[in-house]
């Protein structure tokens, strides 16, 4: 475990010493604060608009950081040949992949926490304490990021960042439209199209299962019957993708 933690901690340290990360975080925090100004030019429930924009900003910027760091997670080690002195130690390949992944997840957790602290501070000054559901929604956001990062890690374990970015971005978009695939697929006349749509629905990640932001924005409680299965789905899917990433990387011949 200490070896796994050493790799994770090194990945975290590398990420937090990267200036690009701070730029993205700066924009994220900027949008959260700017949501106050944007609410002034909107009609309707201004409090909800602030919550919607600010919470949306956390989701989007956390996802950008996950994709940005995830797609180069393993590739960077190969490209910079830093992997030579790690793999030549008593480190199984799966441990290397998992350690890198955990380090990135730790980075994302800290990033989300920073944005959440800014959001909570904003809420305290403007609208009073946020509802508990807001914190639950960030637990589920971490589950979304865990799944997205697992896919990015899988792509990164065998392809260059450009390709990995394209695949991860496509999955990110499709994963938020998974329910639409099901709905439009089941309305199709052709049984073949229906079968394809159903297969895609079950194979591709469904990030919407893990998204309870609408409830958090409206401060409405979410039943545990909704949260429990969602977390189980996220955990099992993430574990499967990580296992695939470890298997792919274990077979890879390092140049």
């Amino acid at each position: 475990m200490s070896r796994l933690w050493a790799i994770a901690a090194n990945t975290f340290r590398e990420a937090v010493r990267d200036r690009v990360l701070y730029s993205i975080l700066f924009f994220g925090v900027g949008v959260i604060i700017l949501s106050l100004a944007l609410s002034e030019v909107t009609i309707g429930d201004q409090d909800k608009v602030v919550r919607s924009i600010a919470q949306g900003a956390i989701d989007v910027f956390a996802s950008i950081i996950a994709m940005f760091l995830g797609v180069s997670l393993v590739w960077k080690e190969l490209e910079h040949r830093t992997i030579y002195t790690v793999i030549s130690k008593p480190i199984p390949r799966w441990m290397f992949v998992l350690g890198k992944y955990l380090g990135l997840m730790l980075t994302l957790a800290v990033e989300v926490l920073i944005m959440l602290v800014v959001y909570v501070a904003l809420m305290f000054t403007q609208q009073g304490p946020p509802a508990p559901v807001v914190f639950v929604s960030y637990g589920l956001l971490m589950a979304q990021l865990a799944l997205l990062t697992a896919w990015a890690t899988l792509f990164s374990s065998y392809s260059a960042p450009m390709t990995a970015s394209a695949f991860t971005l496509a999955l990110f978009v499709i994963g938020h439209l998974a329910d639409d695939i099901w709905v439009y697929g089941s309305q199709a006349d052709s049984p073949a199209v229906q079968a394809i749509a159903r297969t895609l629905y079950w194979v591709l990640p469904n990030f919407e299962i893990l998204n309870i932001r609408p409830w958090a924005v409206h401060h409405r409680d979410v039943p545990w019957e909704r949260i429990g299965p969602a977390l189980a789905y996220g955990a099992s899917y993430t574990a499967a993708v990580l296992a695939a990433a470890a298997a792919v990387f274990s077979r890879r011949d390092i140049k």
């Binding site: 090194n10 340290r13 590398e14 010493r17 990267d18 910079h80 040949r81 830093t82 030579y84 002195t85 030549s88 130690k89 008593p90 480190i91 199984p92």
Partner: peptide, 19 residues
């Protein structure tokens, strides 16, 4: 991997984490 527990290795032109 356990074979490498008591092995020290330095690659040609070593590349290390610059951070």
């Amino acid at each position: 991997p356990e074979a490498r527990r008591k092995v020290g290795f330095m690659p040609e032109r070593p590349y290390f984490y610059p951070h």
